[in-house]
Design a protein around this nucleic acid. Structure first.
Lengths: 201, 201, 201, 201
DNA sequence: AGGTAAGCGAGACGGTACGTCGCGTCTTCAC
DNA sequence: GTGAAGACGCGACGTACCGTCTCGCTTACCT
């Protein structure tokens, strides 16, 4: 913790302090000024770091944000496993909605998803490193429902999580528990009629 | 039609030729070089128009793209009305998927939706001028199913269209007719089991 | 004087009101904001006149200023003729110094002379329309001293007025009566020694 | 001398190569296209330098020209000292006339003097950094004539150099040796009559 | 008395240059 | 050999004026 312990960058490797300061500064700037307010020069100034240090380790500002996202999806969005599938599913969807709408890493993910619409390489990287692993975790959840693995699982997940992302990214409507619970219920009790979907909203 | 008839811009109003050239150029640039390749200077050069003319009428490049979107949603995405609701719904979802994934205005909409993640004002404008009117057209479609108007309609639409937008904006998976038909079927026959959803894929 | 009498411009000639407003506005702008602050658009706005009206009658802003100078040199700088040459000469040099340093048309002349350093056409026009006629008036003054016409007159005038212009345009030193009187004295009594020139300063 | 030795600009200071290229380009443009043809963009392009580099070191194009003037006055206009005052004075006035009318730095000085008519700050800077030091060198010349220092010296210099500047800046007349010699003679032999001044012209 | 043509205001237009911001590269020196 | 500092070439930004143009109004004068 002491200044003595801080790597300043030398032949023994990069400065962890600089790395953390950069990621932190990028996060802050995204929260304070939005995506356009995140600039390499701004990050460098706020982090007390030189531009060169940033360019040495990250190819672009989206890579900084990408790394700032870290393992937050794995940490925050691993579905629970209580043994009661219905509860686990409802829980997970609620957590996902909350993550996307109100968490700091959720804001980063939204910004990156937005940028991914302009940048196919970023899109692919997001999918490979975050979205497909997350999908894998979701598949594991559904597997506990006794569903046989297969394309049906993915289709079901698209129907479960798609409307949540849709509200977050497109309509901007809030995503309350009533909404995610209804999605879960539709999966759990496919026979219920349409109006019942709203009765629980 | 003659050159005599061309508004060149005077006290009686702006030049329609310049307006059209700008919108067209913006569209082209988006298609050719992506969102980052759309610059005011680039639009001006390609449209044979001065920068000032663009700034006179549009606050920013997203406003140009916004106007370039025009009434394409209303024109291309008004659900059909053949009298057979099931066909109409299936048709509409297929059309929506095609629009989002393979049409020029769909590309503009994707870019704007991406940018909207960084720009709340744009997000609101997109919703007010395009998404909510589109939702209204979708409500009219569902009304023909005999569904009573109410929040249930919106929830149903979120489940019908949400997964399509999700694939387009997030996973990047293709959205084939089998996928949209399955969504329609799930709405039309809520009792079918999950695996059947994929059997038609 | 009534509005009825104001030419608004028609087939029979230009609007005198517009002309005067333009010249006045140019003058004001020069005084208030300096030469760089004189723009065609600024003149048009302040004069309540359209740009086109200015361009119809003047090729450029320097032409406006040029016309704003009017006959001020002839009016303000015609040497007096009291019959006493020494007094006339002293008077004239004092008047010239005052005109150049503290009058409104003097400010216009200084600005135009400055601009003439960048614009040979303007320089020639200034000389043809103002400076050479002024030189002619000065020659007439010297002729009354009994000096035979010839190149000697011009050389003498260069020595009489040159130092005044020099102070105004180059050193920025004030040009008090003592200075101009000394110039006159040096001409009137060429035998006086150098130090006496300053003793009257 | 090698490329290795060229400062490219870093924490230890600016690039001397860029500085020289900018000054050279500005000089060239002034000579080729006149003052209005000197633009920051034009300098940048011709010098192979970015606009930002110019703005980093010079507030305006006038400042570039100012620096381009360098020490040329001190170098070219230091009066000679042969021990024969009359010769020195005649020589100096001839050199001054030639400098102002036909040298490259003289053209820069004329342009700056012209611009100084529109810009008091530039006027003061010209005087402080170039004109007053030059006046000091001229005073030293006159001191060798045995003239006691005092305001008489300045008045005499105004009469010696004023007419030269006057012809250069105002009338545009040529300034031949006969003209400057006559000025020198009038100083050296104040008793000669007026007509004699022209006889040597 | 009506038609006509010039002067006028308004202001949109294609341009050029402005001065600024951020990019990504580079070089140097301290540690 | 990392990192802070910061100059550099570059590209785009948004603004100010330029000089040109077209339009519709007004106003004599001239059928």
């Amino acid at each position: 913790m002491d200044a003595v312990d801080v790597h300043r960058g030398n032949r023994h490797g990069r400065s962890e302090a600089a790395r953390a300061a950069v990621l932190h500064a990028a996060d802050d700037l995204l929260a304070e000024r939005g995506f356009a307010g995140v600039t390499i020069e701004g990050i460098a100034e706020r982090a007390g770091v030189s531009k060169q240090t940033i360019y040495r380790w990250w190819p672009s500002k989206v890579d900084v944000l990408f790394e700032a996202l870290g393992d937050d999806l794995a940490e925050d969005l691993t579905p629970p496993d209580t043994g009661v599938f219905a509860d686990d599913l409802r829980d997970y969807l609620r957590t996902l909605a909350l993550f996307l709408t109100h968490s700091d890493p959720g804001a980063v993910l939204r910004a990156l998803t937005g940028q991914a619409q302009h940048d196919p390489a970023l899109a692919e990287r997001l999918r490979a490193e975050h979205l497909r692993p997350q999908r894998e975790r979701e598949r594991a959840l559904l597997a506990r429902a006794g569903l046989p693995p297969g394309p049906g699982t993915d289709a079901a997940l698209d129907r479960l999580t798609g409307p949540i992302y849709y509200r977050v990214l497109v309509t901007g409507d809030p995503v309350p528990p009533s909404f995610t619970d209804a999605l879960a219920d539709a999966f759990l009790s496919p026979g219920r009629d349409h109006s019942s979907a709203s009765s629980s909203a």
